[in-house]
């Protein structure tokens, strides 16, 4: 096998060397970049801007929003896990951008410190099924300081026998706290499930924050 020592750059003539070395004019690359972004915006899933709210009552809370509203609130997970949730099924293109989600971070932070009573933030539930949306919007009507049951939510959406599906829809609530699925409990008065490794404890913390008197 002959030894193909790379020849030095000047073994090509200077004109080709210069021409290739210089490459396209920088404005061309810049214009191509701008048109690329426009094409990606037109053809790829929408952007979801995200950042976290550190050290709240329930730990670090991640907040993600599209141009239309909140798409995800999550806690007790790493950034990588958050990105996995956002990109699952290619629903969103995540972009970490504190400024874009500042209003949401501030509101959530104040709420969890007990300095704010209501969380009337816009939510973007377009990626959900109509059933799931109807369950979440009904759950949103349960006021602070009160709890209700899965069966009651099933009643409210006109599907009284669907309480198990209601439970499932609430377990998959993408925007907890803002849509207060923690206010929905079992008919026998037990707490019922909640997301994350510290699920029930988180649910309890939120209900206590909202002044719900818990027995037992």
């Amino acid at each position: 096998m002959p030894d193909h020592k790379p020849e030095s750059a000047n073994d090509m003539t200077d004109s080709i060397q210069d021409y290739l070395q210089n490459g396209p004019r920088p404005e061309l690359a810049e214009q191509a970049h701008v048109r690329l972004l426009a094409r990606l915006d037109a053809e790829l899933p929408p952007r979801a801007y995200y950042d976290n709210v550190p050290n709240t009552l329930i730990g670090d809370v991640w907040v993600a929003a599209s141009d239309q509203g909140l798409v995800l609130i999550d806690f007790d997970i790493s950034e990588t896990a958050l990105l996995a949730v956002l990109t699952k099924g290619q629903r969103y293109r995540p972009v970490r951008d504190a400024r874009r989600v500042d209003p949401y971070r501030l509101a959530v932070s104040e709420y969890l410190m007990g300095r704010r009573q209501r969380l009337d933030l816009p939510v973007d539930l377009r990626s959900l099924s109509p059933f799931q949306r109807s369950v979440l919007l009904a759950a949103r009507e349960v006021p602070r300081g009160q709890v209700t049951t899965y069966a009651d939510i099933a009643q409210r959406i006109g599907k009284p026998r669907a309480f198990r599906a209601v439970g499932q829809a609430l377990r998959n609530n993408p925007v907890p706290i803002v849509i207060p699925c923690h206010r929905i409990v079992n008919s026998d008065g037990t707490l019922g499930g909640y997301g994350g490794v510290l699920g029930s404890q988180r649910k309890l913390d939120l209900l206590k924050l909202e002044g719900v008197a818990l027995v037992g």
Partner: peptide, 20 residues
């Protein structure tokens, strides 16, 4: 999706860094 221990930058960051 990626395992927990590898850092995948958001896709838009790849575009920003490498398109030119």
């Amino acid at each position: 999706m990626p395992p927990e221990n590898t850092a995948f930058p958001p896709f838009d960051a790849l575009v920003e860094t490498h398109s030119r």
